[in-house]
Write a protein that binds this DNA or RNA. Sequence first.
DNA 1: GCGGTCAGCCAATCTTATGG
DNA 2: CCATAAGATTGGCTGACCGC
Length: 435
Amino acid sequence: MTYRLSSGASAPSKPHSLSAISAIALDAGLVRHPLVSPTDQVLILRTIDETGSAPVGDVMATLEPHDDPVGAIVTLLEAGLITVDLSRGIFDEHARLSRTTPLPPDEDPDPAAPAGAVQPKGPTSDGVAVPIAPDEPVRLDVVGAASTPPAGLKSVPVSPLFPAIHVGAGEARRAFASCPDLARPGVYLLMSDTRAYVGMGSVVGRRVASGTQPIEDVDTIITITDIHDGMDDADAGVLERILHMRVGAAREVRLINGTPAGAPVTPERYRELNVMAALACDALARDRHLFVNLSPRLALAGPRAEKGQLPPPRPFNAVPEGEVMELAFGRKFMALAARRADDDWLLLAGSDIRLETVVSANASASYLRAAWLHSGILELSESGESYVLTRDLAFRSAGAAMHFVVGSKGQGRGGWRPIEPDFDSGAAGPVLAAA
DNA sequence: GCGGTCAGCCAATCTTATGG
DNA sequence: CCATAAGATTGGCTGACCGC
C-alpha cells in the first residue's frame, strides 16, 4: 500500500521531483509512479477482474487508506492499462473501469474453481485477501511465483530476499520520500566523488530525504530495499553493516561513518541478507557505481571480515606480540588475547567462544558470531559446546573482546588476567600454536 | 554461611537519528 | 539547519543461583 505521506494533500515534499521515477513508465508490467505502488496496481486490476468492470467508487474503497486513490486510478488510465466508460459524460464514482486488453480465458482469476463456487472476495482494508468459505485457502499473488512441479519433482526454496535498487542525483534527495517502494525498511548510500555514507532507515525514502548525514557534495544517492518488503528494521540494520563492510573493503571511497552496530541475527538470516547484499553489489558494479575495480567474483563474495579485524596470519608457533592475557568462563572454556595496546587487543586463534549471546548483550556479539561463522572464521568445537576461533581477530578494547567471547556483559572470573608463567606447558600451549 | 559465577540493571558519556 | 530524542557503549553494581 502506498505510504500515506507519499502523496495527497498532506505530502510534505510535493511536487515530486525525481523525474526518473515520477514519469509514468511501464517496467516489467508495472507502472512506475509515486501514486501507484505495485500493490496498488494489482489491487485495482483485481477489483476490475472480479466482474470484468468495476465502478470508480469500488476501486477507491479497495485502495483504502490511500491518500489519493483517484490519482492512482488516473495514473493507470494515463498509462493505458485501463479505460473508463464516460458515456454519461462525467468522471465520478459511478463511472465504470475496465481493462484496455481483456484477460484471455486461461488467465481467469480462479480457473480451478468449480462452477458456482464462491469467489474470493476483494481485499479487506488492510490489503489482505480473505476467502469467504472458511476452508478455502488464502491465495497469495506473488510476482514470479513458480507453478506447482509435477509429481516426483520438487522445487528447492531459494533465498527469499531480492534487492530493489533506486539511484538518484544528490539534488533529488527529497523525491526519495515520494517513492512508494521506499516507504519500507532499507539501506542507503550517499556518495560524493571520494566519500560515502552508509545508513539505514525504517522508512528509507524519508530517511534519505530528511536526514542530515555528515557528508557534503553528495552527487549520487542509492537505496536498497527488498522487492517484496520482506525486511524488518533489524534486517536493515544487519544489511547496513554488511554493505558498510563491503564498501569499506573495496577501498574505492572513504567511508564517513564508523562501523554500524548491526542487529542481533541468526546465522541463517545473515546468510540470506548476505546473498541479497551480493546481488546488490553485483548490480552496482554492473551499473558502475561501486566495486568497479574488483573482479565480479570478489564483488559477489565480499570480504571475509571488516577492515582491520583480520590481521595477517600468524606464523605457526609464533608467540604474538604484546602481553598475553587469559579469560576463563563457563567452568571449562578459555580464551586468550594479546594486549598490543590499550586500544588494540588481539583475540587469539583457538580461543573458545560461547555459543549463545544473552538478551542484554550488544548487537555485535550476535552479529559477529553469524558473520564469522558465515566466513569460516568461527567453527563449532569438536564437543559442540562452544565455537572456536580459527584466526586471530583484532578488537579495539578488552571489553569488546570479552563481550564477544562471553556473549554478555558479565565480567567472568575477574575478566582478562595475565597468563600463568608456565603457560607453555599447560592448556595455553595448543591455543597459542593453533594459528 | 561463604564465595564464585553471571544475567541484568543503572548511570555516564558519546554518537547517531529524527522532527520541526 | 538545529535542537532534541534515541541509541550505543562502557564500567560498575546487585542479587539470584549453585556447590562446597
